[in-house]
């Protein structure tokens, strides 16, 4: 690991001020991706701003028809939350399926979506539920937040404070996990909003999380596993690697969507 200057601000204002003036500084949340990347020298920030001492960034609360989860809330806490489990059980199950037990005890919601790994689980949940990302400067709709491979709408020095998840009528998540890394080979989050509108978000395709218009149309007509499984997606745009070909990934989307719908229907 290359050397860096370490900072541990006590509050959000101090953290954003530090990140604003440190050119190559990076925010450290749970560190489950960043530290591994720094050990491999894939990341070499000049400064690390450790958010671990900022209590205001953690916690889960109900806010009317939404559940608001602080950026530093760990996956294990979302998975175990009675509030999330009761109102958006698919989100609790998604959080409980990330990585392994130890990773879930350290990794955070904000860290995951700020990193926007193309095979991460949380981006599918945030986009699928049509959540709103609340930052130190503004509120960003999930549709505008994820902008590509490891890219988000976050500007330099802008930090995620929380994510507000509207409680849906029903939702489900299914993933085909890579047996070694537990990252999603393909993961599909389906959601039927209170209005009846359907959202489908896919992770693991290779170029970052995306919504599938084909699946949304099919499920809006008939919210059934069979309707999802009948959708045949083109392999264009899916990545191929030693784990799976583009065709295999495209096929998995319909299969996982079917399972996610089945989970949503309970």
């Amino acid at each position: 690991m290359y050397p860096f200057q370490y900072h541990r601000p006590a509050n959000l204002a101090e953290a954003t001020a530090l990140l604003g003036k440190l050119g190559e500084g990076k925010a450290l949340a749970g560190g489950q991706t960043l530290i591994a990347a720094m050990k491999l020298r894939l990341a070499q920030p000049s400064d690390l701003v450790d958010l671990g001492g900022i209590a205001e960034l953690s916690g889960i609360r109900a806010d009317g028809d939404a559940i608001v989860i602080g950026a530093l809330t760990r996956h294990a806490d979302v998975a175990a939350s009675a509030e999330v489990g009761k109102r958006i059980p698919a989100l609790a199950r998604l959080a409980g399926s990330i990585g392994d037990r130890q990773v879930r005890a350290a990794g955070t919601l904000g860290g995951s979506i700020a990193n926007n790994d193309p095979a991460a689980d949380y981006p599918a949940g945030v986009l699928g539920l049509g959540a709103t990302v609340v930052t130190s400067r503004r509120s960003i709709a999930a549709d505008d937040f994820f902008s590509g491979l490891y890219e988000t709408a976050l500007e330099p020095g802008e930090l995620i404070k929380s994510v507000s998840f509207p409680v849906p009528q029903r939702a489900g998540y299914a993933k085909f996990a890579n047996p070694a890394s537990r990252f999603a080979l393909i993961g599909v989050f389906v959601c039927q909003e209170k209005s009846g509108a359907v959202r489908v978000a896919v992770t693991g395709g290779g170029n970052g999380v995306f919504r599938s218009a084909e699946l949304e149309k099919a499920l809006a007509a008939s919210f059934t596993p069979a309707a999802a499984a009948a959708v045949k997606l083109s392999a264009d745009g899916f990545s191929g690697d030693l784990h799976a070909s583009p065709e295999y990934r495209a096929h998995l989307v319909s299969v996982m969507a079917g399972r996610a719908v089945a989970a949503a229907l309970g």
Binding site: Y6, G31, L48, A76, Q102, V103, A105, A106
Partner: peptide
């Protein structure tokens, strides 16, 4: 997971955390 320890009661991997995170 060979490096698993308890940090404030949670099992975590100590090779994937900085010592300063245990402040």
């Amino acid at each position: 997971g060979a490096c698993t320890i308890h940090l404030d009661g949670r099992a975590v991997k100590s090779c994937n955390l900085l010592a300063v995170q245990a402040q």
